[in-house]
Amino acid sequence: EVHFESHGEEQAMRVVKMLKKRNLTVEVKVENNKWIITAK
């Protein structure tokens, strides 16, 4: 499981795309203006 924190939507979306290319399940949450990305 991979956790990634991002402060910007643009950066977060880039990471999500990259993770999805690896056929991982990606969950995105926004907490306290931080984008929290979890990949399994």
Rank of each mutant, 00 (worst) to 15 (best):
E10I: 10
K17Y: 11
V30A: 04
K21H: 07
N23F: 15
M13D: 04
E9C: 15
V26F: 06
V30R: 11
R22V: 08
E31C: 08
K20Y: 07
N33Q: 06
A39P: 02
K21F: 11
E27S: 12
I37L: 02
R14W: 12
T25G: 03
F4A: 04
N33L: 05
K17Q: 12
V16W: 02
R22W: 15
A12N: 01
E9P: 08
E9H: 11
K20N: 06
T25D: 09
I37M: 01
T38N: 04
E27P: 00
V15L: 14
E10H: 09
K40Y: 14
N32E: 08
K20L: 14
K34R: 09
K20I: 12
K29H: 10
K29C: 11
I36T: 05
E27R: 06
V16L: 08
M18I: 10
A39K: 01
E9N: 04
A12G: 03
R14Q: 09
V26H: 01
Q11D: 13
L19M: 03
H3S: 09
E9T: 05
V26Y: 06
Q11W: 13
K40P: 04
N32I: 04
V28H: 00
V16Q: 02
H7C: 15
E31Q: 09
E10F: 08
E31F: 09
K34S: 04
L19T: 00
E10R: 12
V15Q: 02
A12W: 09
R22E: 07
T38Q: 03
K29W: 08
K20R: 12
L24A: 03
K20C: 14
V28Q: 01
T38C: 09
K34Q: 05
K34P: 00
V26E: 00
T25N: 10
E9A: 10
R22G: 08
R22P: 03
K17W: 12
V2G: 05
S6M: 15
V2E: 06
V26D: 00
K21W: 10
N32A: 07
E5W: 09
M13V: 04
H3I: 14
K29V: 08
T38M: 06
K34M: 11
L19Q: 01
V28F: 06
M18C: 13
A39T: 07
V28G: 00
K40N: 08
I37S: 00
E27D: 07
T25A: 09
L24H: 06
M18R: 07
K17M: 13
H7I: 10
V30F: 15
T38H: 06
S6V: 15
H7L: 12
I36K: 03
S6A: 15
I37K: 00
I36D: 02
A12S: 02
L19W: 04
A39S: 04
S6D: 02
R22F: 15
G8P: 02
N32V: 04
N23H: 13
E10K: 12
N23G: 15
N23Y: 15
V15D: 01
L19E: 01
Q11E: 14
N32D: 10
K40F: 13
Q11M: 10
K21D: 14
H7A: 12
F4S: 02
E27N: 09
E5N: 05
I37A: 00
N33S: 06
E31M: 10
K17F: 12
A12I: 08
K21G: 08
E1H: 12
W35T: 01
N23I: 04
W35Q: 00
S6C: 15
E10T: 08
R14N: 07
W35H: 01
K40H: 12
R14G: 04
K20W: 08
I36M: 05
I36R: 02
K20A: 08
N33V: 03
G8E: 14
E31I: 13
L24N: 04
K21M: 10
E9I: 12
K21I: 10
E1Q: 11
E5C: 15
E5T: 11
W35K: 01
K17H: 10
S6Q: 07
E5G: 05
V26A: 02
K17A: 14
K40W: 15
M13F: 05
N23A: 06
H7E: 13
E9M: 12
N23M: 08
K29D: 02
V28L: 08
E5S: 07
K20H: 06
